[in-house]
């Protein structure tokens, strides 16, 4: 796992445990009553094609800065406590976990909103790219306009 100066961010090839991540968000944290987590996984199909695997590439260095900036914006907009963002890279298979976003706050509203904001911005700002392997061969995924629209709502 690469050494990172951002303890809230991890870019890794290894899988992660939802239970372990929740435990870390809750550990010695008596002030926050809300813990909101999102986990993204590899689907078995995309646009009608059967997917067998995804290969994720990223831009080391920029990825961490981009995610740190998104987290910092979330902290300015909502009263949130702890944040953790994990994104896996390399080859992933159907059902594998790809991404985790965990946010805590005193009350649920802030954690819900901040979690969705972080995911929406990660989708359009963080330098990750997915290459799909399906029955049709290998193919780099195109960005979706709907992701831009979603992030523009914030």
């Amino acid at each position: 796992m690469p050494i990172t100066e951002h303890p809230e961010i991890s870019i890794q090839t290894a899988d992660f445990s939802l239970a372990d991540e929740v435990a870390l968000l809750e550990q010695d944290n008596a002030v926050d009553g809300a813990v909101v987590t999102f986990t993204g996984r590899v689907r078995n199909q995309n646009e009608g094609k059967s997917v067998t695997s995804l290969t994720l590439e990223h831009y080391p260095g920029m990825t961490e800065k981009s995610l740190a900036s998104i987290i910092s914006q979330a902290k300015q907009r909502w009263r949130i406590g702890r944040v953790k963002v994990i994104h896996r890279v390399g080859e992933l298979f159907i059902g594998d976990q790809i991404v985790f976003v965990g946010v805590t706050s005193k009350h649920r509203k802030d954690a819900y909103a901040a979690n969705e904001f972080i995911m929406d911005y990660l989708k359009i700002k963080a330098p990750f790219w997915k290459k799909e392997t399906s029955e049709a061969g290998e193919n780099w995924l195109d960005a979706k306009g709907s992701d831009e629209d979603k992030a523009a709502q914030w």
């Binding site: 993204g40 994720l56 990223h58 831009y59 920029m62 994104h87 790809i98 991404v99 995911m119 990660l122 989708k123 359009i124 700002k125 963080a126 330098p127 990750f128 790219w129 997915k130 780099w140 995924l141 195109d142 960005a143």
Partner: peptide
């Protein structure tokens, strides 16, 4: 300086 296609993570 980096050049790349629109991002598709998450």
């Amino acid at each position: 300086v980096a050049f790349f296609p629109p991002v598709t993570g998450g």
